[in-house]
Design a protein around this nucleic acid. Structure first.
Lengths: 114, 114
DNA sequence: TCTTCATTTGATCAGTTGTTCATATATTAA
DNA sequence: TTAATATATGAACAACTGATCAAATGAAGA
């Protein structure tokens, strides 16, 4: 037991908890989703898309952001497959494509209203 | 109607969605929680505390981080009231103090295992 | 083909963030 | 009181991040 002499107080608890942690890839995947929702500007975009699809310029109007800023944010959401797109001529519509994210949002909305 | 001439395509949809958005304070509050969980190192700490309390040095051992890094992260979690503390002599134990956050985590865990 | 329009992309930059290292603080035993 | 231990705090810094501005791309009409 040469690992216990460095401030390890409760080796049993430590080992049990280490064993219950999800793998690192899972933790990173979870953190990625939380990070996607952690910026207020981007969260507002996701909230705007919860009930119906919108084109980029409508999202910009709804959220009070520039087209460019919205487009950057949408690229992040696209990369994470949180949103999906539908093109209609020159216009691209965005909508939520991830039920899990929608669920997290609804749970969070429900909580913040208390 | 002097606001429609600036690329506003669908004013009806825009107004309806603006009306359905939560207030800015709520959005920021939600984003703060997501941000707290968005860093993998910090998320790992929260995961470690899900089932039982741990002292700082145990958390550090569990998560493979230094005491100092853990302590900084715990300060963030404390500030947001996500964790609570219990002192026992020189030792301070941390545990989760926010059911909503625990729920978000469990939901996320459930989803990532599919 | 050229022009217009909707959107994307890239560069830039100020602000933010997590980790390290050093120091400070609080508790306890001798 | 001093020393040891557990933890918190502060400064520094490299990396990251979101918004702006300019340019590029794609679709459609003339």
């Amino acid at each position: 037991m040469d690992t216990c002499d460095i401030k390890c107080i409760n080796e049993t608890k430590v080992k049990a908890t280490v064993g219950s942690l999800p793998p690192t890839e899972d933790i990173h995947q979870m953190a990625d989703i939380f990070k996607a929702l952690s910026d207020p500007s981007r969260l507002k975009i996701v909230l705007a898309l919860l009930n119906q699809e919108h084109c980029v310029c409508d999202i910009a109007a709804i959220c009070g952001q520039t087209d460019s800023a919205v487009s950057h944010q949408l690229r992040i959401l696209r990369t994470l497959k949180i949103v999906k797109t539908r093109r209609d001529g020159k216009i691209i519509y965005y909508s939520i494509d991830d039920d899990h994210v929608a669920s997290l949002i609804h749970m969070s909305l429900h909580h913040v209203r208390h």
